[in-house]
Simulated assay, not measured.
Amino acid sequence: MAQNPSASRGSALVTGAGGALGRAIALRLGADGFAVGVLGREGDLLRETAQLLADAGVHHHVLPADLRDPAAIDAALTETESELGPLEALVNNAAIYPATPFLDISQDEYEDVVRVNQTAYFLAAQGAAKRMAPRKSGAIVNIGSITFHGGWANLASYVSTKGASVGLTRALARELGAHGIRVNGVSPGAFPTKAEEIHENPEEYNRFVIDRQSIKRRGADAELAAVVSFLVGADAAFVTGQTINVDGGWVME
């Protein structure tokens, strides 16, 4: 999995890189030849991702940041290019998902989810596009969720922001294509990540997921990362404005 320096493809920035899916995406893009900026809340998880990239020989840079802060987003983009070279790919992956019944969600909680899951995606994509447009090259991937297609109890804030990521993907693809920038989305199904801690009975939830999937096993993080890899790569040069469900055949629309 060591990177071949002669095959360098510029830099990629992955937000939420301390989480399981963000980590898998960062490792895959590093293996693909990108220098990788890993952005997330400072802590052991982000450091573990950085260590795995180092072990794989991937040129990388750690960017501890709070996505609630617009200045931190712009600084991370600038630092990525300064440390790793021209930004060729952005993966908006970071998200928060407080599990609260709709009737109990406070305005403060809702607005916090919007800041991380929606506003940060907008600002990061805008900042990335401003850097990509002069070069007429770049790819942006917004990570959504299949919960947008069917709703999900106690996650109204999360589901609504993930729906917004689909709309943002389509709007940006329409507008940025003329600048040589492709914008796509990936909607994960129920991958076995830390997010499942919001469910009281893990075994029951596991059965619930597999019953609804066409493929009767849980997905692996690397399988999601592979789709992101495709979307930022040359094989997807004529693909934009699409959101691909990676969910074992749960949602078909």
Rank of each mutant, 00 (worst) to 15 (best):
2 A>N: 14
3 Q>R: 15
8 S>T: 10
9 R>W: 01
10 G>R: 08
11 S>P: 05
11 S>C: 06
15 T>A: 03
17 A>W: 00
17 A>F: 00
26 A>H: 08
26 A>N: 01
27 L>G: 01
29 L>C: 09
31 A>N: 10
33 G>A: 08
33 G>L: 11
33 G>I: 10
33 G>F: 10
37 G>P: 03
38 V>T: 12
38 V>A: 12
39 L>W: 01
40 G>P: 06
44 D>L: 10
46 L>P: 01
47 R>A: 15
51 Q>N: 11
53 L>A: 07
54 A>P: 00
55 D>S: 12
58 V>Q: 06
58 V>Y: 07
60 H>C: 07
61 H>Q: 08
62 V>D: 02
63 L>N: 04
65 A>K: 03
68 R>L: 05
69 D>N: 14
79 E>I: 07
79 E>F: 06
85 G>N: 08
85 G>E: 11
90 L>C: 05
92 N>T: 01
98 P>R: 09
100 T>R: 14
104 D>W: 09
105 I>S: 03
105 I>D: 02
111 E>S: 12
114 V>N: 04
120 A>M: 07
121 Y>E: 00
124 A>T: 06
125 A>C: 14
139 A>I: 04
140 I>F: 04
141 V>W: 02
141 V>F: 00
142 N>K: 00
144 G>R: 00
145 S>Q: 08
146 I>K: 03
148 F>D: 11
148 F>S: 13
148 F>H: 13
149 H>I: 02
153 A>K: 15
153 A>L: 14
154 N>T: 13
157 S>E: 09
158 Y>E: 01
159 V>Q: 07
168 L>S: 05
170 R>H: 13
171 A>T: 14
173 A>V: 03
176 L>V: 02
176 L>W: 14
186 V>W: 00
186 V>Y: 00
188 P>N: 10
190 A>W: 13
194 K>L: 12
196 E>P: 01
205 Y>S: 08
208 F>S: 08
208 F>A: 11
210 I>L: 14
214 S>Y: 13
229 S>A: 15
235 D>G: 09
236 A>P: 04
237 A>C: 11
238 F>C: 07
245 N>P: 08
245 N>T: 05
247 D>M: 06
247 D>K: 02
